[in-house]
Simulated assay, not measured.
Amino acid sequence: MKKPYSVSIILRTDKKGIDGKCPLNVQIRLNSKVLKLPAKQKVFPEEWDKKSKTCIGKGFGEINIFLKEIELKLEKFCMNKINNNQLLTIDIIKDYYNGINLNCFYTVFDKMFEIKSQKLKEPTIYKYNLLRKYLKEFKKQIDVVEVDLMFIERFEAFLRKKDVGKHGISNHHKNLDAIINLAIKHKLMIENPYINKEYKENSECLEFLTPDELESFSKIKLNHDSGLKLTKDRFLFSCLTGLRHSDINTLTIGDIDLKNRMITKEQIKTGRIVKVPLNTRAVLMVKKYGKGKDKDELLFPSVANQNDNMRLKTLAKTIELNKNLTFHVSRHTFGTMMVNYYQTPITIVKEMMGHTDISITAKYANVNTDIMKEAMRNKFKFKVS
Rank of each mutant, 00 (worst) to 15 (best):
Asn31Asp: 14
Glu156Met: 09
Ala183Glu: 00
Asn249Thr: 06
Asp257Val: 09
Gly17Trp: 07
Ile169Ala: 00
Asn192Val: 00
Leu284Trp: 03
Glu320Gln: 14
Ile90Asp: 03
Leu214Asp: 01
Leu135Ser: 00
Arg12Met: 08
Val384Gly: 02
Gly59Arg: 14
Lys40Cys: 09
Glu137Ala: 07
Asn101His: 10
Leu325Cys: 08
Asn192Ala: 02
Lys33Trp: 04
Leu209Val: 03
Pro277Phe: 07
Val286Gly: 08
Glu297Val: 00
Lys317Met: 10
Leu284Ile: 06
Met353Thr: 06
Asn98Lys: 07
Asn322Asp: 15
Thr241Asp: 07
Lys350Gly: 05
Leu243Pro: 03
Leu11Ile: 13
Phe208Ile: 04
Val384Lys: 13
Ala304Pro: 06
Pro23His: 11
Gly61Lys: 14
Cys239Thr: 10
Asn98Gln: 12
Met353Gln: 03
Gly290Leu: 07
Ala316Tyr: 02
Thr270Trp: 05
Lys373Asn: 11
Arg154Leu: 13
Met262Asn: 14
Ile115Asp: 09
Ile256Thr: 07
Asn80Gly: 04
Lys50Ser: 12
His167Leu: 07
Ser302Thr: 11
Leu214Trp: 04
Phe300Leu: 04
Lys383Val: 10
Phe217Glu: 01
Tyr342Leu: 12
Asn202Pro: 09
Leu230Ile: 11
Asp296Ile: 00
Pro38Cys: 10
Lys229Tyr: 11
Glu114Thr: 10
Thr241Pro: 06
Asn305Asp: 12
Lys317Glu: 13
Ile184Phe: 00
Leu24Tyr: 04
Asn84Ala: 10
Ile184Trp: 00
Met372Ser: 06
Asn25Ala: 10
Asp177Glu: 12
Glu122Asn: 12
Ile169Cys: 02
Lys16Arg: 15
Lys161Thr: 11
Asn309Val: 02
Gln141Ile: 15
Met79Leu: 15
Glu297His: 03
Lys288His: 14
His328Thr: 10
Gln41Tyr: 12
Ser216Tyr: 11
Ile371Leu: 15
Leu299Asp: 01
Gln267Lys: 09
Phe44Arg: 10
Pro277Asp: 06
Val147Ile: 15
Val349Gln: 01
Asp294Asn: 15
Asp255Lys: 12
Lys127Glu: 14
Thr318Cys: 10
Ile10Met: 03
Asp49Asn: 15
Leu230Cys: 09
Gly57Val: 09
Ile179Glu: 00
Lys116Ala: 01
Glu156Arg: 15
Lys313Ile: 04
Gly17Met: 13
Phe208Lys: 03
Thr124Ala: 08
Asp49Tyr: 01
Asn85Ile: 00
Ile10Ala: 00
Leu88Trp: 01
Leu188Met: 15
Thr13Met: 12
Lys21Val: 02
Val145Met: 07
Arg160His: 12
Met337Gly: 04
Met1Ser: 13
Tyr289Asp: 06
Glu374Pro: 06
Gly99Met: 08
Arg132Gly: 00
Gly292Phe: 04
Phe382Asn: 11
Asp233Cys: 06
Thr231Asp: 13
Asn378Asp: 14
Leu321Met: 07
Leu135Tyr: 01
Phe44Ile: 03
Glu153Lys: 15
Lys121Asp: 07
Ile125Ser: 01
Ile70Val: 10
Glu213Arg: 09
Ser218His: 07
Lys73Ala: 11
Gln86Gly: 06
Asp308Tyr: 01
Thr210Pro: 09
Asp95Ser: 11
His172Gln: 10
